[in-house]
Design a protein around this nucleic acid. Structure first.
Length: 838
DNA sequence: TCCTCTGTGCTG
DNA sequence: TCCCAGCACAGAGGAC
């Protein structure tokens, strides 16, 4: 297939210039940093994108039709720095020697030229890729045949990619830029409306025109006022950012076909001192830089017989179509058609990131209830905590990396990786974890992400206003006490105030830079010593954290449906847990009273209720099972308060004589065990001497000897094999167990102790989620899983069904495995997360 | 300008 | 010299 690469010369050259400023020059002293940076990037694109046609566009004059529309348009722009200007002819010469067509058209901006050319080529059946860092070119990705190679992110963006990176889909890029302006192009936008507001407003209203039709509904009031006052400027900005797509093209597209580099190129590179770029030119001076062997693109009907016979398939989504590859080549068809043709063989096909694939298929109107094979997850269970990037996998499993940014490149990499991954899963003994836990979890997580959780934004806004007032009051007190103003949020400035101005003692230094620490522990201690400022700072910090991370940040993540759609990442943690991001909903406050208020904002939709279920003491129960310690097991079997029971045991008193302090100490040791805590950490935690802490630990192990034996056994196994396993066979590789450095070794040992416990709990929860999801579906319950917070599940159910759902979830969680101790789950029902848990 | 690092703090 | 596993914020300073 013909593929046209259009390079925005201007933005890429500027970027290369600033990145490599003053760091390179030719033997004669001419600066060459920008030339080098540009060419290195250019060669990389040729390699990764493998285009058949290439052109690079440069601006040649500053006078264009736009300058006439806005006097200031580009008027205030700095002239090109001299050091950069002298490099332009060098870049152009190199490109010519590379056999690349230059587009230098007076009176037309390079962006307009690119726009016109891209649309023409797309109409003629080209795949078009535009290489730029400029935001305004993103508008062109509206056309499904046009994609954007973001040279900074080194990522190929399709329509969805633009939406991810820019915040709105390509069709709305112009609308957003009309509001926020574009500093690099001197587009004013609306003063007072920045990046965040602009994107939120367009997400809500859709366009500048619609925004002005509903101006009275615009919030915040500040934005409404700014928009009302700058209507003309906004509308002019909108005209300016819209690219011209009707520039006459004085040549045929075929003239842009790549030509072999000229023999003089090598000499030219040598004269500039670009030794490393010479290797890009290949062994001989003349052969064209052709990409490595690619899968041939074939019409669907032609590939189909091969697909039906093939024993290895790879797939991915391309523009809403499902592309399928086998050794003979690749082809794409509508998701529906492709899935119908594949039938159950889809489940054996390999993709990268199946959750994204399933989600895309669903967007394309096809709901698949089971996942296909996933190279990302296979790589994850093989080496959790390591990167699962596709290019890294190619290196790790020794398969040649094709141009991975292209669909055919990714598909051929998957075809090469799949057998290696399958073999490695078997060799490592993690096939079960992959097939029974990770793959079945994919549709569950996809559904949770899609459903999202409703947020009461008005409640958060009110709370934010209250906290803002409290913060201002605290700030005044702090400045009065400090005797001057400073940025309280800056640890550096705060340290200056506390330790230099006020002369308080430096209690601890940070580990990375040895700067005086100002963390909560230090402030707490200083407050205890009678200083007033640290106590105020502690209060300020709590409020500030709450406001910036939760009260103000969460509403910004709201989807158009009024719900928050977090991402549950399945291939991140080293222990097998999930993680949550964008936003992280696994760290919503609960420990402090004010923080807990945030959970009131997570609410059930009308007519529904939230059902919350959390495992009680899951990790300690896992430890009891793994160690089979009789005292621990029987305490759980009898359903005792586990911390009180261990306190009675360790302190040798009857259970009714356990004091709160004794229970607290036992609780700390119980938790500490799971983390491999030592006497030093325990002494700090309990506020006792290290000797006393050691005595506690000795007493603990004397009463619970099997726990000690288990922990020693895990360390021994880890030292012998370099890895540890969960009850379900999930593996974690651990380095450093034989290190000479006691610090490194201690860290490794603690990881070895913690991973099986934390990981087994994670496995149990994953299985419980899969079963809950299946049961709800099979029994037709009007309820959906929404969130997982490691040992807790949050569901939303029709109010009438909520109690039954609660019973089902509880039974499912408790019955997920039969351990040496019972599993216990507590459930609650309520209108909000806070109330359902209470 | 954007990106990365650092310190800090929230959760289980 | 802190106790495992995460993610996100603000500030500060350098740069593919």
């Amino acid at each position: 297939m013909a593929k046209l690469l259009l390079v925005d010369g201007h933005s890429n050259l500027y970027r290369a210039f600033f990145a490599l400023k003053t760091r390179l020059s030719a033997p004669d002293g001419t600066p060459t940093g920008a030339v080098y940076g540009f060419l290195r990037m250019f060669h990389k694109m040729l390699r990764e994108l493998a285009p058949t046609h290439v052109a690079v566009a440069f601006d040649v004059s500053r006078e264009t039709f736009r300058t006439r529309m806005l006097e200031s348009y580009k008027g205030t722009r700095q002239p090109m720095p001299e050091d950069l200007r002298v490099q332009v002819p060098l870049v152009q010469k190199a490109l010519e020697l590379l056999g690349v067509t230059l587009l230098l058209t007076p009176d037309v901006e390079a962006d307009d030229m690119i726009a016109s050319l891209a649309e023409k080529a797309a109409a003629e059946g080209f795949e078009v890729v535009i290489a730029t860092v400029d935001k305004d070119l993103m508008q062109l990705v509206r056309d499904p045949h046009i994609k954007l190679w973001h040279t900074r992110l080194e990522r190929l963006l399709d329509e969805q990619g633009v939406a991810e990176v820019f915040g709105v889909p390509p069709g709305q890029v112009v609308e957003v830029l009309a509001l926020e302006g574009d500093a690099s192009d001197n587009i004013p936008g609306c003063p007072g409306v920045g990046e965040k507001t602009a994107r939120e407003l367009i997400r809500r209203f859709g366009s500048v025109a619609a925004l002005y039709q509903h101006l009275s509904e615009v919030t915040p009031p500040k934005a409404q006022k700014a928009l009302a006052e700058n209507r003309e400027l906004v509308e002019l900005s909108r005209t300016l950012v819209e690219l011209k797509r009707d520039v006459a093209l004085p040549f045929a597209l075929e003239q842009l076909a790549r030509r072999p580099p000229l023999p003089e190129l090598a000499e030219f590179y040598r004269s500039l001192g670009f030794a490393s770029l010479l290797s890009e030119l290949g062994p001989a001076p003349s052969p064209p830089p052709v990409s490595p062997a690619e899968l041939p693109a074939l019409p669907w009907g032609e590939l189909l017989p091969s697909l039906e016979k093939a024993d290895l398939l790879a797939c991915r989504l391309v523009d809403g179509q499902l592309a399928i590859a086998c050794a003979q080549g690749f082809a794409s068809a509508s998701a529906e058609k492709a899935l119908a043709a594949l039938g159950p063989r889809f489940f054996a096909a390999w993709c990268y990131d199946a959750k994204a694939l399933l989600s895309g298929l669903r967007d394309a109107g096809v709901a698949v209830e089971r996942s296909c094979q996933d190279a990302m997850l296979a790589a994850y269970v093989l080496a959790p905590g390591e990167t699962v990037e596709l290019s890294a996998l190619c290196t790790r499993y020794r398969v040649p990396a094709p141009p991975l940014a292209t669909p055919e490149g990714e598909l051929s990499a998957l075809l090469a990786l799949a057998p290696k991954l399958r073999q490695a899963l078997e060799a490592e003994g993690v096939v079960e974890v992959y097939e029974k836990l990770e793959l079945p979890l994919i549709p569950v997580l996809e559904d949770m992400e899609r459903v999202g959780v409703k947020l009461d934004v008005r409640f958060l806004a009110e709370l934010s206003t209250k906290v803002a007032a409290l913060l201002e009051a605290r700030e005044r007190e702090i400045f009065a006490e400090a005797g001057g103003s400073f940025n309280i949020n800056s640890p550096k400035q705060l340290a200056e105030v506390l330790f230099s101005w006020k002369g308080m003692p430096v209690l601890r230094r940070t580990s990375k830079t040895r700067a005086p620490s100002t963390d909560a522990d230090v402030l707490q201690e200083l407050a205890l010593q009678g200083f007033r400022l640290p106590a105020l700072i502690l209060e300020y910090r709590e409020l500030s954290k709450l406001k910036s991370t939760y009260l103000d940040a969460l509403p910004k993540q709201l989807g158009p449906d009024g719900r928050i759609h977090t991402r549950f990442n399945q291939a991140v943690t080293a222990t097998g847990r999930l993680s949550s991001s964008d936003p992280n909903l696994q760290n919503i406050p609960i420990r402090s009273e004010l923080g807990r208020e945030v959970r009131r904002a997570f609410v059930a939709d009308a007519g529904k209720l939230l059902v919350v279920a959390d495992y009680s003491q899951i990790e300690l129960r896992v430890l009891a099972h793994l160690s089979r310690d009789p005292a621990l097991v029987s305490a759980f079997e009898r359903g005792e308060d586990i911390h009180a029971a261990t306190a009675a045991l360790v302190f040798g008193v009857a259970s009714e004589l356990v004091t709160p302090d004794m229970r607290r100490a036992a609780k700390t040791i119980n938790f500490g065990l799971i983390y491999g805590m030592g006497a030093y950490a325990l002494s700090r935690e309990l506020g006792v001497s290290q000797r006393e802490a050691q005595a506690f630990i000795d007493a603990y192990f004397a009463r619970l000897p099997r726990v000690r034996e288990y922990l020693e056994g895990v360390k021994e196994e880890a030292r012998r094999t370099g890895k540890v396993r969960t009850l379900f066979g999930r593996v974690r590789h651990i380095a450093g167990l034989d290190s000479e450095n006691a610090n490194v070794r201690g860290n490794a040992e603690r990881m070895a102790i913690n991973a099986p416990v934390q990981g087994t709990a994670a496995d149990l929860m994953k299985l419980a989620m899969i079963r809950t999801y299946e049961s709800l579906k099979a029994q037709g319950f009007p309820a959906r899983l929404l969130l997982q917070v490691h040992d807790e599940l949050v569901l939303e159910a029709q109010a009438e069904a909520a109690q039954d759902v609660a019973s089902l979830v509880k039974a499912t969680m408790e019955g997920v495995a039969s351990l040496a101790v019972p599993l216990k789950a507590d459930v609650g029902v309520g209108p909000s997360w806070a109330e359902a848990k209470g």
